[in-house]
Computed example of a mutant assay.
Amino acid sequence: MNTPLDWPSIIGLCGTACIIGAYAYLTLAKATNPFVLHGTNLMGAALLTVSLIYHTNWASLVLEGFWAAIAIFGLARAWRARTIEGEKS
């Protein structure tokens, strides 16, 4: 494999690090903050999408779309839960 390490690839590697970091956080933390978890996953999906736009891989691009959608859903659910808790106080 003789693929150069260009800017889109470096951005994609940062996205990969975000997703792996979020998974490690979920696995290792005693209690997780959903904003950190889903926000990091969303950032990872966005960065990988940038890379995949330049180096197109349709299967991976679809995967990142679903990954981002799930992260957005998780953020919205966490935001709603936070709002409901604020109203109870």
Rank of each mutant, 00 (worst) to 15 (best):
H55S: 09
S89V: 13
H55Y: 12
G65Y: 03
W79I: 00
R77E: 11
A45L: 04
K30M: 03
D6W: 06
V36Y: 12
S9M: 08
E64C: 04
A17H: 03
N2F: 12
F35V: 11
G44Q: 06
I11T: 08
V36H: 11
M43E: 11
P34R: 10
N2I: 07
L13H: 10
M43Y: 08
I19C: 02
P34Q: 09
N57G: 03
N57V: 11
A71V: 06
A78P: 00
G86V: 06
G39H: 00
F73V: 13
T32Y: 05
G15F: 01
W79N: 03
A76N: 08
F66R: 03
L75Y: 05
P34A: 11
G44T: 01
A24E: 03
N2Q: 14
L37S: 00
E87R: 13
T83N: 13
L5Q: 04
L26N: 15
E85D: 15
M1C: 14
L13N: 08
R82Q: 10
L42Y: 07
L13M: 15
T16R: 04
A68T: 09
T83Q: 12
I72N: 03
A68D: 07
L47F: 09
A81C: 12
A78Y: 06
F35C: 12
Y25Q: 09
K30C: 05
L47P: 06
A45D: 02
R77V: 09
T3N: 11
T32L: 04
G74V: 01
F35I: 14
M43Q: 12
N2P: 02
S51P: 02
A71K: 01
P8S: 03
L26V: 07
P4S: 13
I70G: 02
I20G: 05
T32Q: 10
Y25N: 02
C18E: 06
R80A: 03
N33H: 14
W67P: 00
V50N: 00
L47M: 15
K30Q: 10
A17T: 09
K30A: 02
E85K: 13
D6V: 09
G21S: 00
T56K: 07
L47Y: 07
A76Y: 10
L48K: 02
K30F: 00
Y23I: 07
W79M: 10
K88N: 11
A45K: 08
C18R: 05
L26Q: 14
I53W: 14
